[in-house]
Design a protein around this nucleic acid. Sequence first.
DNA 1: CGTACGCTTGAGCCCCCTCAAAAACGGTGG
DNA 2: CCACCGTTTTTGAGGGGGCTCAAGCGTACG
Lengths: 243, 243
Amino acid sequence: MKQMAQKEQTHIRIRAANPWPPEHGQEPTHIVLSAAEQAELARLAEVIVFETEGSQITPQGQSAGFLYLLADGVVRASHTLNHGDRQVVAFFWPGDLFGLAQAGTYVNSAEAVTSCRVYRFPIRKLEQFLLTHPKIQHSFFIKAIHDIRSTQRQLIVMGRFDVPRRLAIFLLDCSGHELYFDPATQILSIPMTRYDIADYIGTSAESVTRAMNTLESKGLIQRLAARAVELKRADLKAFADVE
Amino acid sequence: MKQMAQKEQTHIRIRAANPWPPEHGQEPTHIVLSAAEQAELARLAEVIVFETEGSQITPQGQSAGFLYLLADGVVRASHTLNHGDRQVVAFFWPGDLFGLAQAGTYVNSAEAVTSCRVYRFPIRKLEQFLLTHPKIQHSFFIKAIHDIRSTQRQLIVMGRFDVPRRLAIFLLDCSGHELYFDPATQILSIPMTRYDIADYIGTSAESVTRAMNTLESKGLIQRLAARAVELKRADLKAFADVE
DNA sequence: CGTACGCTTGAGCCCCCTCAAAAACGGTGG
DNA sequence: CCACCGTTTTTGAGGGGGCTCAAGCGTACG
């Protein structure tokens, strides 16, 4: 279920781009931390491995003592409402931070979509640490801004696109993460269920399937299996027409 | 249209609550900056007043040189898509930061909903300043986290609630801001148009009107004028049933 | 080999969108 | 003060996208 490991080669990456880059052009997709900074951060953290998918990492409503940095795997953050409906608020990929709290308790529950490895930071210690390491705090700040941006983007998608388009955008987003997308064959391995996707793009699992049909009949994707799809990315982009 | 003013009494407030409060209980709704910190920040900023509503503050797509802190008034951040649809991504109230950028350009356009007053920070200088003032940078970090939280909340609302409920939640959110809500009479003065509301909660202006009808017929609100509504807050909360 | 879970398909209905037009409101100038 | 005009808000009618309920199918796993 859950394993501890103290000695791993530490390689801490934060997935975010500086919104105000010194010079424009090719944006790095990750914040670069020096080896020393990585080591300092790693000293604060515990590495935890969640083997089985579906494991709860931060249960919604529970007292929030930790911030998490995803090292490997995929995690979903979902919020369950009183009447039982579930909204998946974000999927996290390697380099993402999660464990959002409000008034000291977790706002969402975070669950392993695949088996995954995380760095777990005691929030009190981390806060102190960041105050004495302004450059690293700056990286965390940039990451937070990055996450505002992606959440806003999802908001736009939910507010103004029909279900097939939302799905197209979702598939394109997934294709941005190596390990689940093979650029050579253009095949995407979808790590999550139809239900996860549905709760993320604000629809039902049935409608996700139907939207897959729509995309396939338009020749924008080709289904090889339920969880494996070949993408025509240019066509998908033209169809969704985001930005 | 736009007026400069150098000498105002500076009173800088940031609207956000620390997600990991030292002790639980009554949460402050604003970050407290010392008089010295306020003065230091104010030295970086220029105060700008936008008299006419609808004024563009940050046009979408324009090169992003500034970060803004709203002092007075209401601002909307909207994103316009290629096919012309508009999504209002957030409304800003006094104490909110805006001017979100990506790769050096503004992601959304920010426009004055009412006449308003802002502090304008040159982003380069502010970044340098924050690196040498870790406590203030921490406040900005907390604010960013706060904004992630509110954007996620809106995402949940858009994904899982019907239009009348979305409107109910919106009205309740508005009622949290003094100056537009009178606790004595429970009357809310809505500063924005039906179109703004519609583009924010992901529907059409007509549906906003119809949702108003629904809420009124259920006895949850009482319309005094198009922009003035008496709220039965407890009943609205029960109806919307968020969290 | 059976069961559970995830995925797909079908049928019917309802919420909400779109188009269209009337009504209310606010401001401006005579 | 009033007539005029643009904007905002409201109401109406009709159609469609997506939801719900229900059942069939495929697959992994004990």
